[in-house]
């Protein structure tokens, strides 16, 4: 139980996928102009990550021992199909959300954060429960990062930003400062 909590917190804060590993930066910069969409993308991210964790566990357990060289490609196919699944489910269940996420759901297919999750969790030898908890933590961490950046970016719209840094430059600066602030979590719960 302690171990699971540690895995969760580690993925959420200490080894935050976006702010510490710098994975999944395309949605981090692309979809954070509004808090609402950022949060929805975060939720979609959590969902896809959990599915990825389940699938990668299954693959790792039953398929990959026989064909280790298929690891990368089978992960990518699993991720792609799971994103397709999310897309179809969303289209049916929540057309509004589907419209709001638009282009970005397919973008998750090729998102390094999600492939990273599959690779990290198999490299670390996580079992089923651990893998799912890891995915929840990682997804939560990505959502946290997205939402934080989106809230700050919404505020910057009201500001008198100099032309030289307007746009992506300022977004990267904000992301950098948030990332520096997250360095404070380094080593959390390891020295107790």
């Amino acid at each position: 139980m302690d171990n699971l909590i540690w895995i969760f917190i580690s993925a959420l804060l200490v080894n935050n996928f976006t702010l510490t590993y710098f994975l999944g930066l395309c949605p981090f910069l692309g979809v954070t102009s509004r808090l609402e969409t950022a949060f929805r993308l975060g939720l979609a991210n959590i969902f896809v990550m959990v599915i990825t964790a389940i699938c990668s566990y299954a693959l790792n357990e039953w398929v990959l021992p026989f064909a280790p060289f298929l690891r990368l490609i089978s992960f990518i196919i699993v991720i792609a199909s799971s994103v397709q699944f999310v897309e179809m489910a969303l289209k049916k269940l929540s057309p509004d959300l589907f419209r709001a996420l638009g282009i970005y759901l397919p973008l998750i297919t090729t998102n390094c954060a999600i492939l990273g999750l599959a690779l990290f969790s198999t490299n670390k030898g996580y079992g089923f429960t651990e893998g799912v908890v890891y995915a929840l933590g990682a997804g939560g961490g990505v959502t946290l990062a997205l939402v934080l950046l989106a809230a700050v970016r919404e505020e910057t719209r009201l500001l008198d930003i100099p032309d030289i840094v307007k746009g992506t430059a300022l977004n990267l600066i904000i992301a950098g400062i948030i990332s520096m602030a997250f360095m404070g979590f380094a080593g959390l719960f390891t020295t107790v």
Binding site: L148, A151, E155, I178, G184, F185, F189
Partner: peptide
């Protein structure tokens, strides 16, 4: 408290304030 008692660093006041600064736009919203 989290950083000082459970973190890897002895001091966390700077990070705590910066993190809450990052949360401030959301709190204001």
């Amino acid at each position: 408290l989290l950083i000082r008692y459970f973190g890897g660093l002895p001091e966390g006041v700077m990070y705590a304030i910066l993190l809450m600064n990052a949360f401030t736009p959301m709190i204001n919203r």
